[in-house]
Design a protein around this nucleic acid. Sequence first.
RNA 1: GGAAGAGUCGCAUAGUGGUCUAGUGCACCGGUUUCGAAAACCGGCAUCGGGGAAACUCGAUCGAGGGUUCAAAUCCCUCCUCUUCCGCCA
Length: 425
Amino acid sequence: MLDIKFIRENLEVVKMAAVKKKIKIDLDRLVAVDDARREVMTALEAKKAEQNRVSADIIAADAVVKSQLITEMQALKTEIQADEEKLKPLMEEWKALMLQVPNVPDMSVPDGESDADNQEVKIWNPDGSTERPAPLPFPMKDHVELMTALGMVDFERGVKVHGFRGYFLTGDGARLSWAIWNYANDFFGAKGFEPLLGPSIVRKSNLYGTGHLPNDAEDVYNTQDDDYLIGTSEVSTMGFYADEVLEQSQFPIKFLAFSPCYRREAGSHGKDTKGLIRVHEFFKVEQVVLCEASHEESVRLHEEINRNTEEFIESLGIPYHTVLNCGADIGQGQVKKYDIELWVPGEKTYREISSASYFHDFQTRRFNIRYKNSEGVMHYAHSLNCTAIPTPRILVSLVENFQQADGSIKIPEPLQKYLGKTEIK
RNA sequence: GGAAGAGUCGCAUAGUGGUCUAGUGCACCGGUUUCGAAAACCGGCAUCGGGGAAACUCGAUCGAGGGUUCAAAUCCCUCCUCUUCCGCCA
């Protein structure tokens, strides 16, 4: 949500933002509706002021004058009701349009038509080279073959129980997941993140707050009670402080949230039909940050949380690159986004593992999360988030990159103590 | 799932149709006093929206949304949340 005042005063900037993000919205219509809304509101408020004034007279008046005034007010009431009826459809259209307005992307966000236009800003390899990794020096297996052979995953029974994209993690697949979660908790905990386990069934309002609704409705599961399953713990974590006034001294607030994540993956039925890359239900450890309303602070923390995840991946020794997402590949509320993508030898390409975004006050306006600064002035906080680690997707790169010629998997050093062994075979 | 009670400004509370421009206490901020502090006293102290250069002004907000009324914190309806009790349950 942007401030209507900002939209009116910077209309061309917001129009450019919509073009850059490939979002279709009629901003001239919004301004016209806002004009009409203001006009009706001004007339309505003048009538209410009159009503309030005469109300005071009615109390003091004698019986004759009183009944006369009441008759007058009955007529005024009809007019007020008529204005309110006029205002209703205007407000509905106004709100619907306001929910569509994109946040303005940062100057540094490149133009582009799709994720193919994201800019690679970094390539990292354990050996220090900055080239794409070479093929493995032996006939390699993909993660489906590897993990099935090692009893780490059971797709057949997963599909039997859940259907398309169903899976069970079994044996060392499950153990490795626990090891990753525990390692992530320690790793990010050492960076000042406070663990948070919250609801994964939430009220609709939280998805409007994060910006997942109204635009991504088809990708979200809901329940017969009109509650929704979260696609990321960002949703419930942002809701944590909804409608609250925080202290500036609390900032930056850093949560490490962990939750199951549910995504319908509508519109991607044909993609990634095998394996653990794209599933309906997964788990994710997520960095969620609230800070003071300062662009510089948002930028600083954005770089920081993205770097946190890079460091986590580096500690595991998995080749990755980082991309700066282009305008078409960043969400409605996001100002700027980096994706970290891990090398998947079986596909000879990088696959997204993490997404770091900042929103300025786009989300906190919708959630009504504010704080008083040192001068006692109320501000909306800024919000950011970045994936710490998703499972099981991380397993794909992990097992494929660490596979040995004999089909066993070497375990990265930091995970060994959490898993209790140095290899899976 | 059932029953009863409750939701008022950061906190605690008053307020059963018009004198509520929502009172009071605490907390907080400024001042007087003091060597300094405490206490006391004086003053300030919600948010959002419209108009205005500003002083200011108008409106909205008493959990949310509707309704009754000339007029609603107050009456009615629906919903949400919390508390207590019963039932069920990990």
